Amino acid sequence: MSFSEELEFGHEDRKRIYEYVERHGAVDPDEAQERLRIDPGGFRHHVAILKRDGRLEEVEGKLRVTIDAGAEEEYATDGLEFHIRPARQEDLSGIVGAIRQVAEEKTYIVAESVADEIDHEDALLRHNELEARMFFVATVGDDVVGWVHLHAPELDKLSHTAELTVGVIEEYRGHGIGSHLLSRGLEWAASNGYEKVYNSVPSTNEDAIAFLEHHGWETEAVREDHYKLNGHYVDEVMMALEL
Rank of each mutant, 00 (worst) to 15 (best):
S183T: 12
N199T: 10
E129Q: 14
A132D: 11
I177M: 05
R133E: 02
T161M: 14
I169N: 03
G178D: 02
V197N: 03
L182P: 01
H149F: 07
S191L: 12
H175K: 09
L164S: 04
L125C: 09
E154C: 14
A162R: 03
N199C: 08
E171V: 11
H151Y: 15
S159L: 13
A162N: 05
R133C: 02
M134H: 13
G193R: 03
Y198W: 10
Y198P: 04
A132W: 09
R173H: 06
D156T: 15
V140L: 06
M134E: 13
L158R: 15
E195P: 07
S159V: 14
E163V: 05
H149C: 08
Y198I: 08
R173I: 04
H180P: 07
L155F: 15
K196G: 07
R126I: 08
H151I: 14
I177F: 02
G167Y: 00
G185N: 02
W188L: 05
V140P: 06
E131F: 09
V197C: 08
I169P: 01
Y172K: 06
M134V: 14
V148M: 00
V144W: 05
H160I: 11
A189P: 04
H160D: 10
V166C: 03
I169V: 12
I169T: 04
K196H: 09
T165R: 11
H160C: 10
R126Q: 09
L150H: 04
T139R: 09
G146E: 02
T161R: 14
V148S: 00
N199G: 11
I177R: 02
G146M: 01
G174P: 04
G185P: 02
H175P: 03
S179Q: 12
V168C: 01
S191N: 15
P153V: 15
S159C: 13
E171K: 13
V145R: 02
R126E: 09
Y194T: 04
H151T: 15
R173G: 04
K157Q: 15
W147I: 01
A138S: 08
R133L: 02
E131P: 07
Y172A: 07
W188N: 03
Y172G: 05
T139V: 11
D156Q: 13
V144E: 06
V137N: 00
